[in-house]
Amino acid sequence: MKFVPTAEQADFARTLDAVLSATDVVSATRAWAEGDTAAGLDLWGKLAEQGVPALLVPEDADGMGATPVELVIAMVALGRHAVPGPWVESAAYLPRALGDTAALGAIAEGTPATVAVAPQVPYALDGEVAEQVYAVVDGVLRSATATSSVTSVDAARRLATVEAGDAVASADLDRAFDTAVLATAAQVYGAGERLLEEAVAYVKQRRQFGREIGSYQAIKHQLADVRIALDFVRPLLDGAALADGTATFSRDVSAAKVAANEAAYLASRVALQVHGAIGYTAELDLSLWILKVRALVGAWGTTTFHRARVLEALVAGEGAA
Rank of each mutant, 00 (worst) to 15 (best):
M1I: 01
E8S: 07
Q9G: 15
D11G: 13
A13S: 03
A13C: 05
T15L: 14
A18Y: 07
S21K: 05
A22D: 05
T23F: 15
A28Y: 01
R30T: 06
A31G: 04
A39Y: 08
L41S: 03
L47I: 12
Q50E: 10
Q50K: 10
P53C: 08
L56D: 05
D60N: 13
D60A: 08
M64T: 13
P68H: 04
I73E: 14
I73T: 14
A77S: 09
P86S: 14
S90H: 08
Y93D: 08
R96M: 07
A102D: 09
L104K: 04
I107Q: 12
T111K: 07
V115Q: 09
A118S: 09
V121P: 01
P122I: 13
Y123F: 14
G127T: 11
G127R: 00
E128R: 12
E131D: 13
D138P: 00
R142I: 08
A144N: 05
T145I: 07
T147L: 01
V150C: 02
S152K: 04
V153P: 08
G165Q: 13
D172K: 02
R175H: 03
T179N: 00
T179Y: 01
L182N: 05
A183T: 05
Y189P: 09
G190C: 12
E193S: 03
R194G: 01
L195W: 03
V200P: 06
R207V: 11
Q208P: 10
F209P: 13
I213Y: 11
G214Q: 10
S215A: 10
A224G: 11
D231L: 11
L236S: 03
L242N: 10
A243S: 09
A247Q: 02
R251G: 14
V253A: 00
A255M: 00
A260S: 10
N261W: 00
A263F: 07
A263Q: 13
A264V: 04
Y265F: 09
R269S: 10
G276A: 02
I278F: 08
T281A: 04
L284Q: 11
D285V: 10
S287E: 13
V293W: 00
V297K: 15
G301N: 01
G301C: 08
F305Y: 09
H306Y: 01
R307D: 00
A308V: 03
R309G: 02
E312P: 12
V315K: 01
